[in-house]
């Protein structure tokens, strides 16, 4: 497989009255063709800023890319002019946002919104674009496509709007689709429909997808690889099967332990991660998770752990993986075996 997208040492910060927020710190990852990569993390972990930087959506100022490269098909997106970037946005890379109500234009018919990109990027004629738009509405599973073409966003339900967003995003056959919490605002039965649709489209069109979510269930069922972010950094990454079976970072353990197990016959108390994420105005010198970590050692507070390689493509930024560190029983994986 070939790299479609490669992000190298990305650092993004925002200037505010309170100081400089270091939103993304030294993030590197890649996405292959036709692959679904999930990014999980809590609010403020930098997952949205990372993808918005890829899309060139960070307002500068106050935002600033301080370092790094974003190679898309071997071209550095950060070095492109506004014009060149506009050619890529919406045609080769497109994005689906969390809130389908505020990201659609309320005064424009759905069909016209889908056509927009086709006319601008693919230079289709109006009739051609219309034909294609109706086709897209059908493709994303909205019934009565002809009729829906002429409707406004407020006439659509939440799930339908999200489908319409996906139709817009996919209309120009992008190589990469970035979906920022596409199902967070939806009900579970509708979420299942939208996730199935995305997996289906990936099979049909071989579009690579970056899926941002905070739901580990969504990750396990949809993605092939996963990146766990915390306080602007990648703390762990790897193939989904491997990472769920053998997580090697206490934050990942914490995330897994704080969701209840719906299959368990007996109630066990949830194990929350105590405390709250660090202030990114002045992130701690050492591991950003150390203040909340049960296993924190002296070194964790003073020195940033490197990304230890656990297995092929599986990395964890935690000192526990150093050969000199005490052996810590991996509670989550152990708990799962027992069932």
């Amino acid at each position: 497989m070939t790299n479609l997208l490669e992000v190298k040492n990305l650092e993004v910060s925002f200037k505010t009255f309170g100081g400089e927020v270091q939103a993304v710190r030294n993030v590197s990852f890649h996405v292959d063709k036709g692959e679904i990569v999930a990014i999980v993390g809590e609010s403020g972990s930098g997952k949205s800023v990372t993808v918005q930087t890829i899309m060139g959506l960070i307002p500068t100022p106050p935002g600033k890319v301080k370092n790094g490269e974003i190679l898309f098909q071997n071209k550095d997106l950060l070095k492109l002019s506004k014009r060149e970037m506009q050619k890529i946005k919406g045609s080769k890379i497109s994005m689906v946002f969390q809130d389908p109500m505020t990201s659609l234009n309320p005064t424009m018919r759905i069909g016209k919104q889908i056509e927009e990109g086709l006319i601008v990027h693919q230079k289709l004629s109006k009739t051609e674009a219309r034909r294609r738009a109706v086709e897209m509405i059908r493709l994303v599973g909205i019934p009565n496509a002809e009729e829906r073409y002429n409707q406004y966003p407020h006439e659509f339900s939440g799930g339908m709007r999200q489908r319409a967003m996906i139709a817009i995003a996919l209309s120009c056959n992008p190589e990469l689709l970035i979906a920022d919490e596409p199902t967070t605002a939806l009900d579970v039965t509708i979420q299942a429909q939208v996730l199935d649709l995305m997996k289906d489209l990936k099979e049909k069109t071989n579009t690579a997808i970056i899926l941002i979510t905070h739901d580990l269930g969504v990750v396990a069922e949809t993605a092939e690889r996963v990146i766990v972010m915390y306080a602007g950094m990648m703390v762990e990454s790897g193939r989904v099967n491997e990472l769920f079976e053998n997580p090697r970072h206490p934050y990942t353990w914490g995330l897994m332990e704080s969701i209840p197990d719906t299959n368990a016959a007996h109630k066990s108390r949830l194990v929350p991660i105590e405390g709250s994420p660090p202030d990114l105005f002045s992130p701690p010198k050492g591991c950003p998770f150390a203040p909340r970590c049960k296993y924190a050692m002296e070194i964790c507070l003073s020195e940033m752990p490197p990304a230890f390689e656990i297995g092929e493509g599986h990395h964890s930024r935690c000192w526990l993986n150093d050969p000199r560190a005490p052996k810590v029983e991996n509670e989550v994986a152990a708990g799962r075996e027992k069932q």
Partner: peptide, 26 residues
């Protein structure tokens, strides 16, 4: 039944359950 089958399970190895995908919106 449909509601429960739609909950994503945070375990990629769990036998893929038969998911009942409901057609349409409420």
């Amino acid at each position: 039944q449909a509601l429960l089958s739609a909950i994503p399970v945070a375990n990629p190895k769990a036998a893929k359950r038969e998911r009942i995908v409901l057609a349409g919106d409420p």
